[in-house]
Amino acid sequence: MNHLNLSRYEGEWLSFAQTVEAEGGKKVLSCYQCGKCSAGCPLSFAMEQQPHQVMRMVQLGLSDRALQSPTIWRCAGCFTCTTRCPRGVDIAGVMSALRVIALARNVRTSRRAQAFHKVFLSLIKRYGRINEFELVVRYKLASMNLFQDLDLGLRMFMQGKLKPPRGIAGVRQVRALFRHEKGGGKRSGLRLLPGLQLTRHREGV
């Protein structure tokens, strides 16, 4: 059995829960562990740590466990949990807050999902809109996952669904919005070839 020395975390617990709340994880301290969120979660079968367990980790200030949990990247953001929680906890919001904090602290647990989000945002920053063609190509480079869905891509191309990217006129204004992003524009060393840069990161923490 795993033992946990809670006294080690004294002092940190409240501040971690507050950080999570500030990032949009509303009312995480109100959770009373009924398990309803986990019972209705469509991805729970693929989660080692269930959503209610992650809520508990946050409450106890077990920040390293919560941030390293693959659960936060398995969560599809469907809001079933948030809709049903009898205590008004925004569980889906807690999950995305944990993803935000994990990215900001460089906790690399799910390289693929993290690569996807980074590529996605780098494209918004560059063009103001997402070009799905470039999104898929760059994501595949970033995740070294080149051959999956090649057939689908080819069919879409033939159907005229994948087009070359074009920027919008207001792209500067969109870029300005990124200056508020944590770590400023700098952390997004995403600027030129985000995909390729990301492949250099090692997996694990």
Binding site: V100, L103, H117, I124, F178, E181, K182
Partner: peptide, 8 residues
């Protein structure tokens, strides 16, 4: 966006 930055 919401997985990377709350404000964004």
């Amino acid at each position: 966006a919401h997985s990377v930055d709350h404000t964004l």
